[in-house]
Design a protein around this nucleic acid. Structure first.
Length: 582
DNA sequence: GCCGTTTTCGGCCCGACTGTTTTCAGTCG
C-alpha cells in the first residue's frame, strides 16, 4: 500500500487499539492517537522530514514516534506494528464497532471463548456461552445481539442537512416544556460538522428528572438506550441517536460549552484554564485548591462569560476544533464570521433545460422568495449528456431567454452562465468564443474521476487558467457518506486560484459541502474568493445556502471573503472586470 | 508515550449510567 500521511495516521490509530487490547497504559494509547492526528493535519512533506529526522520541533511527536516515522519513511514498514498485529486475528477489530463493547470485554471474550469476529460472537451468544461469563449476564448477551443488528442497520453517519429538521423539532418540544429554562443543541451539529453520528441536547432546568423523562417520551423515539435523572439517550426510527443532558440553570453554560466540544478544543481550553489556577468542567469553573483565586462562577451566565473570564473572546461553536481559534481568541484576532443574512445573491442554479426539476421562471421565483437580489443560471454543458447538457446552440438560445426574462424583472437580476465540464485533458466543453458570451462560468469535473492526483490537479489547473472561468465548481466531487472525493492536491489548486483570480465554489448541496471546510482558512489567507452556491436543481434547494454558510463559518470565512455577499452593482462590476484584474 | 515559567518525574479529564455486582468495572461521551 502507498505510504501516505493518512495511511501512517491509520497505522498509529491501529497501534493504539492493539495496545488497548493488551491493556497498556491508557496515556500511551493517547500519545499514539494524538500522533495520528498530528500526522493527519501536518502541513509539509512529512515523509521527507521523517527521513531527515527533522521532526523534533513538532508538538505531539516525541522521540519514540519520530523513530517510528523514520522507520516507516525509510523502509516502508514498521516492525513494531507488524509484530503487534500478528498477536491478534484481524477480524477482532469488528467487535469495536459494537455499542457496549470495549477493549476489556473484547479481550475477555477473545481470551476465554476464542471469539474473534462478530460471527463468532453471535454464535456464542446464541449458545448461551456469553451470558455465563463473569461480568456478563443474560442482559449483556441480549444487548450484544441488539448491537450487532444495529451495526448492520445503521452503520452510517447522518448528513448535517438530513437531521436539521429533527434538531428544530426536538428543540421546539423541549422549549415547550414548562420546566425548561433554556435549551440548545450541542455537539458536532452545533459545530457544523458536515456529518454527525448523534445529536446532543442541553437543557437548563430546576427539574432535570422531569426533562429526561419527557425526552424519552418524545414522538419519533423508538427505543430508550438509557435514562437517568440528569441524562437520557434515545434512538429515533431512522436510527439516529439523541442524547439529552439536563442541568441546573447555573450549570447550563458550562454543560453547553463542554458538550459542544470538540474534545480537542476542550482539552486545549482546559490547559489554558489550569494556567490560571482554575479548573473547568461541565458543571463550573472552580479555583484550584490552595491557589487563592476567587471563584468566578457566580458571574458566569452564558458561554461568552466563560471565555471572557479566561481572557478570551467568545469563540463561535463552528471554530471550536483546536485549529488556532484559542490563540486568535487570546490575541483578539478571531474573524467576524459570515452570516446567512449577508448573502445577497448566488450562482450555480440548474433548470429543466438540463437536469433541474423546475423551469427557469420557477427557479427565479424561488430565489426571489429567499431574498436573493441576483441569480446566476448555470445548466450543464454538452458532455454531461446524462444531465441533458446543453450544446452551443441550446446554450445561445438559453442566453437569449435569460436576457429576455431579465428585462421584465425589477427586483432580481439574472446572470447567464454555464456549468461547463472540465474534460479529461483539462480543456473546456465550450470554446472561448462561446464562453465569452456568458456573464459567468462555473467549471466542474463530472467524469474521469480515477485520474492520478497529479493528473487531476493539472487538469483542473488548466481549466482555471482560462480567462472565462469565473469559478471552480465542487472541487473534489465527493458525495458525503456515498462516494469518496477524487484525488486532487488542494494546496496547488488554492495557489492557482489565487494566481489566476479564480473563485472557488463552496457547493452547499448537503451531500457535497465541497470544497471542504478544512481548506478555506488557507484559501482565504491567500486571497482566494469563495462563492457559496446552492447547486440548485429544485426550488427548495436554495435552503441549502443555510448549510453552505455554516460550512463557510467553520472555514473561518468573513463576509468579505465571499463573493455573493457583494451588492448587485459590485457583482456587475466584478464580472465586467477582466479576470486578471479582479 | 508526551510534556515542562508549577514538574526531566509524575502527571495526563472525569462523571453518569448500566449491568453486574453486594461495592464496582466497563463503557461512553
Amino acid at each position: 500500500m502507498d505510504l501516505t500521511p493518512n495511511r501512517i495516521a491509520e497505522i498509529f490509530d491501529e497501534i493504539a487499539l492493539l495496545l488497548e487490547l493488551k491493556g497498556e497504559n491508557p496515556f500511551k494509547l493517547r500519545a499514539y492517537r494524538q500522533g495520528a492526528e498530528v500526522v493527519r493535519e501536518f502541513d509539509g512533506d512529512l515523509l521527507a522530514m521523517a527521513r531527515a529526522r527533522a521532526l523534533s520541533a513538532v508538538k505531539g511527536l516525541g522521540s519514540a514516534l519520530q523513530d517510528k516515522l523514520h522507520e516507516l519513511a525509510t523502509t516502508g514498514a514498521l516492525v513494531f506494528y507488524e509484530n503487534l498485529r500478528a498477536e491478534f486475528p484481524p477480524t477482532l477489530f469488528e467487535l469495536f464497532e459494537l455499542q457496549g463493547l470495549g477493549p476489556k470485554k473484547i479481550k475477555l471474550l477473545y481470551d476465554t471463548l476464542g471469539i474473534a469476529s462478530v460471527a463468532d460472537l453471535v454464535a456464542a451468544c446464541a449458545a448461551g456461552k456469553v451470558a455465563a461469563l463473569p461480568g456478563f449476564g443474560a442482559k449483556s448477551a441480549a444487548k450484544i445481539l441488539e448491537a450487532v443488528a444495529l451495526r448492520q442497520q445503521f452503520a452510517e453517519r447522518f448528513l448535517m442537512g438530513q437531521v436539521a429538521n429533527t434538531v428544530e423539532e426536538i428543540l421546539a418540544a423541549l422549549r415547550r416544556h414548562p420546566d425548561t429554562l433554556r435549551t440548545q443543541v450541542a455537539g458536532s451539529y452545533r459545530r457544523a460538522k458536515e456529518t454527525v453520528q448523534d445529536l446532543d441536547f442541553m437543557v437548563g432546568t430546576a427539574n432535570p428528572a422531569a426533562l429526561t423523562h419527557f425526552f424519552t417520551q418524545l414522538p419519533g423515539v423508538t427505543s430508550i438506550i438509557g435514562s437517568g435523572d440528569t441524562k437520557a439517550s434515545v434512538r429515533l426510527k431512522n436510527g439516529l441517536q439523541c442524547d439529552l443532558r439536563a442541568v441546573s440553570n447555573a450549570q447550563y453554560p458550562f454543560a453547553l460549552q463542554y458538550f459542544t466540544g470538540s474534545k480537542e478544543h476542550n482539552v486545549a481550553l482546559r490547559q489554558i484554564t489550569l494556567k490560571q489556577k482554575l479548573n473547568l468542567n461541565e458543571y463550573g469553573l472552580t479555583p484550584l485548591p490552595g491557589s487563592g483565586v476567587l471563584d468566578p462562577t457566580p458571574a458566569i451566565h452564558d458561554e461568552a462569560d466563560i471565555y471572557r473570564t479566561l481572557g478570551l473572546d467568545f469563540i463561535p461553536p463552528e471554530l471550536r476544533e483546536n485549529r488556532g481559534e484559542l490563540e486568535a481568541a487570546d490575541k483578539g484576532t478571531l474573524p467576524r464570521l459570515i452570516e446567512l443574512e449577508n448573502l445577497r445573491g448566488t450562482f450555480h442554479c440548474h433548470t429543466t433545460a438540463s437536469d433541474g426539476r423546475a423551469p427557469l421562471a420557477e427557479m427565479v421565483d424561488a430565489a426571489r422568495d429567499h431574498g436573493l437580489q441576483y441569480l446566476g443560471i448555470s445548466d450543464h454543458s454538452k458532455s454531461s449528456f446524462q444531465a441533458r447538457g446543453l450544446d452551443e446552440q441550446r446554450l445561445l438560445q438559453q442566453i437569449t431567454e435569460i436576457r429576455a426574462l431579465n428585462a421584465t424583472l425589477d427586483d432580481i437580476t439574472l446572470f447567464a452562465g454555464s456549468e461547463v465540464d472540465i474534460l479529461r485533458d483539462g480543456s473546456l466543453d465550450f470554446d472561448d468564443a462561446v464562453l465569452a458570451q456568458l456573464d459567468f462560468c462555473v467549471a466542474s469535473v463530472h467524469a474521469s474521476f480515477s485520474l492520478s492526483e497529479d493528473e487531476m490537479t493539472r487538469r483542473i489547473i488548466k481549466a482555471m487558467e482560462n480567462e472565462h472561468v469565473t469559478m471552480l465548481g465542487h472541487l473534489t466531487g465527493r458525495m458525503l457518506l456515498r462516494r469518496d472525493a477524487y484525488a486532487v492536491d488542494h494546496a496547488r489548486i488554492i495557489d492557482c486560484a489565487a494566481a489566476t483570480r479564480t473563485v472557488i465554489e463552496l457547493n452547499a448541496t448537503i451531500t457535497r459541502l465541497d470544497m471542504d471546510w478544512r481548506w478555506w482558512h488557507r484559501a482565504r489567507d491567500k486571497g482566494v474568493l469563495c462563492s457559496i452556491n446552492p447547486d440548485a436543481h429544485h426550488p427548495s434547494h436554495f435552503q441549502n445556502l443555510f448549510f453552505g454558510v455554516r460550512c463557510a463559518r467553520k472555514g473561518w470565512l468573513r463576509r468579505k471573503d465571499v463573493l455573493n455577499t457583494r451588492t448587485l452593482t459590485e457583482i456587475q462590476q466584478f464580472l465586467r472586470t477582466p479576470k486578471a484584474l479582479r
